[in-house]
Design a binder for these strands. Structure first.
Length: 426
RNA sequence: GGCGCGGUGGCAGAGUGGUUGAAUGCAGCGGUCUUGAAAACCGCCGACGGGGCAACUCGUCCGAGGGUUCGAAUCCCUCCCGCGCCGCCA
């Protein structure tokens, strides 16, 4: 959520920053927010003046009662103005609700360093490793079946398309990747591992920005008004919701391995083959709560933590600086990590690492006290996938594929799989 | 699911329908003392939103939302959460 005062104090600056997102609806929303803000303050001044008056009279009533003096005239007057206060309150509440609805729908201000434009303006920042030629290996949807690790029809039978079943070494791979990634992040990158709920409340979803705007992307359990998490970012970032943190505790760094559930409502048919786009998948997520002045440097830190996973897995990847028009709603700046999949013949997003500045922390009430006696301020939040499993598995199957149809297991993963080779029938 | 008890400032913890935004303690900040520190003592110290150039001032907030009342942390209703016991289940 944007700071309404910032919007008020520097409307043109905010408008210019938001314009970089290339979303034509934003400008009108800003106008509406500013108009509602003016109405809100006008209504506030009126109700507060009336309240102040009534409070003073009430005090006088109390004094007279104590002194055993008559207060009937005052009481009558107070009773008369009661309805007026009530009416003003209703008006104020309506205006505030309308304002909140608008402001909750405004995206974060893009970071000045994010390239401007739509997805075509995304900038390749670096490339690591040696991509094998596209089409030089079997795509994972064939190889996975040949190896007996992938059984999509079984998943479709049990739940529907987009719910994969992995078997044997494929299932072991999920467990191994989880342990490998968690060990790397906790032992070498300093993260605290947390195990968190997969179903969360409406307030939690609102805290990280999924609600109210993206409800159609979420699985919802209506009977209890709970939502399945689309990423561990949601429960983990909300761990400290409405808390005032000690400055010495920052930065807080958490990692979590969870399944992720996404309806992918608008994605029908595109890039959905094999394991590329799923309704349920596993992911290890990294979340950091940091001091605002550290957030630029922290984005590089967390991105490197995600890149380290790919490098240990010996998978070629590139880092993309997302353009303003391609950056997510809550994010100020995002790097995507894309792994090379020679069988699919393309770069696949396996990690998205973002800095949200105070956008999430304002919604979620994540504050800290910069120094003893100082005013509380909002922390900055960041997260990065480290990594999403299915596309990592795609890249492992395709990039490490051998001419004989087996798959070499990179050294870092061998202890977790108990083998250096994926072979058919294992 | 049933019954009972709770939910108060960063934390702990008092609280009578009417100067209680809230005792007290801890933590924090400033000071006295000390070579320095500790201890002791003194003072300050909630959050959020308005108005004002400013000093300052006004309003709201005691789990959430309604209600009673001139006035609610305090009384009533609904809901949420925690704890205990019972039931159910693993």
């Amino acid at each position: 959520m944007l700071d309404i005062r910032r919007l008020r104090d520097d409307p043109e600056g905010c408008r210019a920053a938001l314009a970089r997102r290339r979303d034509p609806a934003v400008d009108a929303a800003v106008d509406e927010a500013l108009a509602l803000d003016r109405r809100r303050r006008a209504a506030l001044v009126r109700t507060e003046a009336l309240r102040a008056e009534r409070n003073a009279m009430s005090d006088e009533v109390a004094r007279r009662k104590k002194a055993k003096e008559p207060a009937d005239a005052l009481l009558a007057e107070l009773k008369a103005s009661g309805d007026e206060v009530k009416a003003l309150d209703v008006e104020l509440r309506d205006v505030e609700a309308a304002l909140e609805a608008i402001v909750l729908g405004l995206p974060n201000l893009p970071h000045p360093d994010a390239p401007e434009g739509d997805a075509s303006a995304n900038r390749v920042e670096k490339t690591w490793g040696e991509p094998r030629p596209a089409g030089s290996v079997q795509p994972h949807w064939d190889l996975g079946v040949a190896l007996g690790v992938l059984d999509l029809p079984a998943g479709a039978k049990v739940s529907g398309s987009g719910f994969p079943v992995l078997r044997g070494q494929g299932s072991r791979l999920v467990r191994g990747l989880a342990n490998f990634m968690l060990d790397l992040h906790t032992r070498e990158h300093g993260y605290t591992e947390v195990s968190v709920p997969y179903l969360v409340s409406r307030a939690t979803m609102t805290g990280t920005g999924q609600l109210p705007k993206f409800a159609e992307e979420l699985y919802h359990v209506a009977s209890d008004d709970l939502f399945l998490i689309p990423t561990a970012e949601v429960p983990v970032t909300n761990l400290h919701r409405d808390e005032l943190l000690d400055a010495e505790r920052l930065p807080l760094a958490y990692c979590a391995w969870t399944p992720c559930f996404r309806r992918e409502a608008g994605a029908g048919g595109r890039d959905t083959r094999g394991l590329i786009r799923l309704h349920q998948f596993d992911k290890v997520e990294l979340v950091r709560l940091v001091r605002p002045e550290a957030s630029d440097a922290e984005l590089e830190v967390i991105t490197r933590h995600a890149e380290a996973v790919l490098e240990r897995l010996e998978l070629p990847y590139r880092r993309l600086a997302l353009a303003t028009g391609d950056t997510g709603f809550s994010s100020a700046r995002t790097f995507d990590l894309e792994v090379w999949a020679p069988g699919v013949g393309g770069w696949l997003e396996v990690s998205s690492s973002s800095v949200f500045t105070d956008f999430q922390s304002r919604r979620a009430g994540l504050r800290y006290r910069p120094a003893a006696g100082a005013k509380p301020e909002f922390v900055h939040t960041l997260n990065a996938s480290g990594l999403a499993f299915p596309r990592t598995i795609i890249a492992l199957l395709e990039h490490h594929q051998q001419p004989d149809g087996t798959v070499r297991v990179p050294a870092a993963l061998q202890p977790y799989l108990g083998t250096d080779r994926l072979v058919a029938g294992a």
